[in-house]
Amino acid sequence: MAKKMLRSVLFACLGNICWSLIAEAAFRKLVTDQNVSDNWRIDSAATSTYDRGNPPDFRGQSCMKRHGTPMSHVAWWVTEEDFTTSDYILCMDESNLRDLKRKSNQVKNCKAKTELLGNYDPQKQLAIEDPYYGNDSDFEVVYQQCARCCRAFLEKAH
């Protein structure tokens, strides 16, 4: 039997305490439910150092618990190595994308395909809005969009 190729995806947002974590957790649950988690290396990171070392936002954790998806993570930022070891870096909005493109241009041997997670949204909502200044319903909207995008991404990346 041929060994499946390991793929890697890194989800990125500004602080790595809200939306990228929701995307990471949603994708992790999806690949686990589809019994393909052994084929993926999954993580998330920030485009800034604002929240380095912080745990996930409590509203995001509550949202994910409601969906039966636990989330544990300590915020960290995208490193130069991520661009050389990740197949995909999927970010949440145009600001994240600009930051990541600027960083990737400084990396030799960059192999990561860096793009918006929203590019995979069947409902064509390209930007995933930052829920940080919102309420529980904003986190739910982010979860629903991330879940849709992750399903479509997984189908395309298979």
Rank of each mutant, 00 (worst) to 15 (best):
Q61T: 04
R28N: 01
T32I: 08
L21P: 00
D33N: 09
G15W: 07
L6T: 15
C13P: 07
G53E: 05
P56T: 03
C91M: 10
Q61G: 02
N39L: 11
N39R: 14
D51C: 12
D57K: 05
T32L: 12
D43Y: 01
P56G: 08
I22V: 15
T79Q: 15
V74T: 15
P56M: 11
C91T: 02
T84L: 07
G15S: 06
L6F: 00
V78W: 10
N54E: 14
N16H: 01
A75E: 13
D33L: 05
D57A: 11
A45P: 11
S44H: 03
A25K: 04
L90Y: 08
T49W: 06
C63H: 06
M64R: 03
Q61F: 01
A26Y: 06
K29Q: 14
K65T: 14
L10Q: 04
D57F: 12
K29H: 08
D43R: 12
E80R: 15
H73G: 06
W19E: 03
I42M: 04
R66H: 10
V36L: 04
S72A: 11
D87E: 08
M5W: 00
D33K: 03
A45D: 05
N16W: 01
T79Y: 11
K65D: 14
W40Q: 00
S37R: 10
R59D: 13
N54V: 01
M71P: 00
M71A: 10
D33S: 04
E24G: 02
Y50R: 12
G60C: 14
M64N: 13
N54K: 12
S86R: 09
W76V: 03
T32K: 15
D38A: 15
S20R: 03
A45I: 00
E80T: 15
H73D: 08
V9E: 02
S8V: 01
R41L: 09
S48P: 03
T84F: 04
D51K: 01
T32V: 05
M64Y: 09
P70G: 08
P70Q: 12
L90E: 07
T69V: 12
T69K: 00
V78N: 13
A75Q: 12
K3S: 12
K29Y: 00
K29L: 02
V78E: 10
I17M: 04
G68Q: 10
E24C: 05
L21C: 05
Q34T: 05
G15F: 06
E81K: 14
Q34Y: 02
L14Q: 05
T84R: 14
E24P: 00
L10Y: 00
H67L: 03
T47K: 10
S8F: 02
F83Q: 11
K3W: 01
R52L: 13
V9F: 04
T32N: 04
A46R: 07
V9M: 02
G68H: 10
A26I: 07
C13W: 06
C18F: 08
D51E: 14
W76A: 09
G53M: 09
D38W: 03
E80P: 07
M71F: 09
K4L: 08
Y50L: 13
G68L: 09
Y88P: 09
G53D: 07
E80W: 02
S48N: 08
K29F: 00
F11G: 06
V78Q: 11
L14C: 04
D33E: 13
L90G: 06
D57L: 07
H73V: 06
D51F: 02
R66M: 07
C18R: 10
V36C: 11
L30G: 01
Q61A: 10
W19P: 00
N16K: 04
C63S: 09
N39I: 06
A23M: 05
